[in-house]
Design a protein around this nucleic acid. Structure first.
Length: 815
RNA sequence: GGGUGCAUAGCUCAGCGGUAGAGCACUCGCCUUACAAGCGAGGGGUCACAGGUUCGAAACCUGUUGCGCCCACCA
């Protein structure tokens, strides 16, 4: 409507663990990569009742991915239907799915570019691991949840003279099952209680392993007994201590979340090995209970277990606490260990215009709090494969340090199916042959490239040059640290540019009790029923009232009001179009046209007010504040209907008596209607399109945005007589003269006073009024005088008298 | 613990230096030549609390309390 070409792409982010879980639950299956492909698998089907994980039917990797594609496609069709019905003005002809070849190729190309530039690397390192999904996860996808737990106080043995009078040392832990993984005890260097012990060793109860007692500033004297047990790995602090203090590695937890079959080598005593055998194969949770029992039986517990509630790290879509295990993974540089890149990212955050501005703080918090590079590899199936192979040595061991990369024009590749350059297919997984990387990339590794994917990078140079960098990223606040941050990161690294100038950060829709909607809480309101019951425009009306950055409670009352507004627009349009245009019919669709001169002061005043509304709406939209734009338009529209239409009705109907006065009214009505419909069009697209179609050509959504300059004033008769009140703040310059809408307000106030008198007298509004006396200051009476004819007619007033007085304007109504 | 936002009528929210606002809900009235899925009128608020700035504070500053969110926090 503003005359610009808009590139508004839409895509489906269909990869990821959320999809895999939905597919598992929907079909009652699980993926087993060891199984062969079944062309026509027998599936339990969607009607199968929710089953335990063990009851799921295992299917091959290829079958699993096929089902993921199938179900996401079906889900996406349902979404598209809902969004089309919502009137989203995205360009459906350019939509993409991140799992399709073109986006996958973009994703792989960006990865290979990062690899070539040294921005992607592998490392064998401790990672946060979801034991249910069996994959590593990234820092951005972790959340804390409060869980109940217990403190156990374990007695570690002290040997030798350094121990002095003490023979044991108490260590509090919430995870006794990790005792076999213990590699050290750590106290704060200033802590007097343990100072003399630092540098000596203690012996773990039950397992009889000697561990050093060390000092580190991260040890908190106030927690537990002030001395912490360091394990491989109980939490991220353990990892820090392990690194800083150069500690041994004694893993006991496997990728499935169960204790490994064999104890760490450090456990050598028969008693220790016997104790470990009691724990082997148990889940961490079960092992915790068993370990506490064993410790109790061995007399190594001091005092009763103390219940606590503590925060535990979870994958945000996971059901079991994350564990930390050591694994080889792929990482992408994100500024955590590169001060220059970190500063560049912070600078980009300041370059970006945030709506609302304070959302930038979340971004900065996140960038400043990054603790490691971006872990992008996932040990899953439905995702874009990491596009590398590894050469195998003579003994069949992969050489991870020399990844084999595909040719650029071969992308996308699946290293598990495709053969790398320089090899034949037969040399897969044989000595001196090759093996494919079996991991896929984090879903954000692809969705962080949405500007590149939508913009045709790098194949369509012309499109890319025209649309990138883009203007706007609309998204919600919970994915600032993922979608927004990763997108800024990729554009910084790939193009050294900010991917868009503006970020419009929406809040959430909360349930009517202001609680977050969630499937498990059962308080989700889905839009489809609402769209059917209240209509799209009503739903959009409610949604548009939500300002950026502010969470909004779902409110059916707002839908009803929106629907009422839509109905009112149709009725008002019908009313206005019921009057015959005074002269030639309006020309081509578009700006309102003067069919007859607008000469009557009330009509001029109304249009002047409307011009001001247009200015304010336009400014609000420019400020990403659609809620204010709607409010301004709506407020004016109701005054237009309730006061102006009623005031002007008698004059407009009286076409036979005073053609000029009637013509002025009808022209003003049609002009205002045209502008109002266009003002509402972006927010209420369907009802305005319908009303527009009754009298205009073409779609209202391609009509020009209304401008005050369209006002059909006849310069010869413009609003000169509108009194001294024209110096008020609302005054506008028009055709070289000053005018404002004071006449409309004066007439509204006058008809309001008359209505009030009738209401208080319990009389119908159409009843006759014998006499109205108005007292007020001369200048106010002058304004009123200019529109008094319309007031008298609309109020059915027989006689009106205006008496100058040195007081606020007041009305006396006599029947 | 650090950060950030919010607190205004019964409800949902505007207002952000100049006499407290809207819609809904509530009460009363009205079939009025667009609309009874409508129209008109009315009642209803120490603007969380305490200081300060100012001629003047709901608004600006400081602090307090409560709620939400972000980050950190698993011994």
């Amino acid at each position: 409507m503003r005359g610009k070409e808009v590139f508004y792409p839409i895509g489906w982010d269909d990869n990821g663990l959320a999809t895999e879980r939905r597919v598992q639950n929907y079909y009652g299956i699980s993926c087993d990569p060891a199984l062969p492909y079944q062309p026509d698998p027998e599936l339990p089907g969607p009607d199968r009742p929710a089953s335990s994980r063990s009851a799921r039917i295992p299917v091959s990797r290829r079958n699993f991915i096929e089902l993921c594609r199938e179900l996401t496609e079906r889900d996406e069709r349902a979404y598209e239907e809902a969004w089309r019905r919502l009137g989203l003005s995205v360009d459906w002809s350019t939509s993409y799915r991140t799992i399709e070849d073109a986006p996958a190729a973009v994703s792989q190309r960006a990865f290979l570019r990062a690899l070539a530039d040294g921005d992607a690397h592998q490392a064998q390192a401790p990672v946060l691991w979801d034991v249910t999904f069996g994959t590593a996860v990234a820092q951005a996808e972790i959340e804390d949840r409060e869980l109940p737990g217990s403190y156990w106080r374990l007695a570690f043995g002290l040997a030798g003279t350094a121990a002095g009078p003490r023979s044991e040392i108490l260590v509090a832990t919430t995870r006794p099952e990790l005792l076999p993984a213990c590699v050290a005890l750590v106290a704060h260097p200033q802590d007097q209680r343990y100072r003399d012990l630092v540098g000596t060793a203690a012996t773990t109860p039950l397992f009889g392993v000697s561990v050093p007692i060390l000092a580190h500033h991260l040890a908190d004297p106030a927690k537990g007994t002030g001395i912490a047990m360091v394990c491989t790995f109980g939490d991220t602090t353990d990892v820090t201590w392990w690194r800083d203090l150069g500690l041994a590695t004694r893993p006991v937890l496997g990728p499935d979340g169960r204790l490994l079959a064999e104890p760490p080598e450090a456990i050598t005593s028969p008693a220790g090995r016997a104790a470990y055998a009691e724990l082997a194969g148990l889940t961490a949770r079960a092992a915790r209970k068993r370990a506490a029992e064993l410790l109790d039986a061995a007399g190594a517990l001091r005092g009763a277990a103390e219940p606590v509630t503590h925060p535990v790290k979870f994958y945000e879509k996971g059901d079991a606490p994350l564990e930390i295990i050591s694994a080889r993974q792929w990482y992408v540089t994100n500024g955590s260990s590169d001060p220059r890149l970190r500063q560049q990212l912070l600078d980009r955050g300041r370059e970006l215009t945030w709506h609302p501005p304070h959302m930038r703080v979340r971004y900065e918090n996140w960038v400043n709090g990054l603790t490691g590079d971006w872990l992008i590899s996932r040990q899953r199936y439905f995702g874009v494969p990491i596009p590398v192979w590894y050469p195998l040595g003579a003994d069949g061991t992969p050489d991870y340090g020399s990844p084999i990369t595909p040719a650029d024009d071969a992308l996308p590749v699946d290293p598990m199916a495709d053969t790398p350059p320089g090899y034949s297919a037969g040399r897969r997984d044989v000595p001196d042959g090759f093996t494919g990387d079996r991991d896929v990339m984090d879903t954000w590794a692809t969705s962080s490239l949405t500007p590149q994917i939508a913009g045709g990078w790098p194949a369509d140079d012309d499109l890319f040059a025209r649309v990138y960098p883009m203007d706007l990223r609309p998204q919600a606040h919970e994915i600032i640290r993922t979608w927004l941050f990763y997108t800024v990161l990729r554009s910084q690294v790939l193009e050294d540019v900010l991917p868009w100038q503006h970020a419009a950060i929406s809040g959430w829709i909360l349930d009517p009790d202001r609680k977050k909607m969630s499937k498990s809480a059962g308080n989700v309101v889905t839009p489809t029923d609402l769209l059917h019951e209240y209509g799209t425009d009503a739903v959009r009306y409610w949604a548009a009232s939500a300002r950026l950055g502010v969470d909004t409670a779902f409110d059916v009352a707002q839908l009803k009001i929106g629907r009422r507004l839509g109905v009112k627009i149709l009725n008002a349009t019908r009313f206005v179009l019921g009057f015959t245009p005074p002269a030639e019919p309006a020309g081509p669709a578009g700006p309102a046209r003067a069919d007859a001169p607008v000469t009557e002061p009330l009509d001029l005043a109304m249009l002047e007010r409307l011009a001001d509304v247009i200015r304010r709406c336009t400014a609000a939209f420019g400020d990403y504040d659609q809620a204010s734009a709607l409010e301004f338009a709506e407020q004016f529209f109701w005054q237009f209907c309730d006061d102006y239409l009623e005031l002007v009705k008698p004059r407009a109907y009286a076409a036979g008596h005073d053609e000029a006065a009637a013509g002025s009214a009808v022209t003003a009505l049609r002009c205002a209607l045209s502008m109002l419909l266009r003002l509402f069009a972006p927010l209420l697209p369907f009802v305005t399109e319908e009303a527009w179609s009754w009298w205009q050509e073409g779609s209202i959504h391609r009509a020009p945005w209304p401008r005050p300059e369209e006002l059909p004033f006849d310069p010869a008769s413009a609003a000169a007589p509108l009194s001294a009140a024209a110096s008020s703040p609302g005054a506008i310059a028009l055709e070289g003269q000053r005018a404002d809408g004071a006449g409309l307000d004066a007439a509204s106030a006058a008809i309001g006073a008359i209505r009030k008198a009738k209401s208080q007298a319990r009389l119908p509004l159409r009843s006759e009024v014998a006499r109205v006396i108005v007292r007020g200051r001369q200048e106010e009476l002058d304004v009123l005088a200019s529109v008094i004819g319309d007031v008298v007619a609309a109020g059915h007033v027989a006689q009106i008298e205006m008496i100058p007085a040195d007081s606020e304007i007041a009305y006396e109504v006599k029947f």
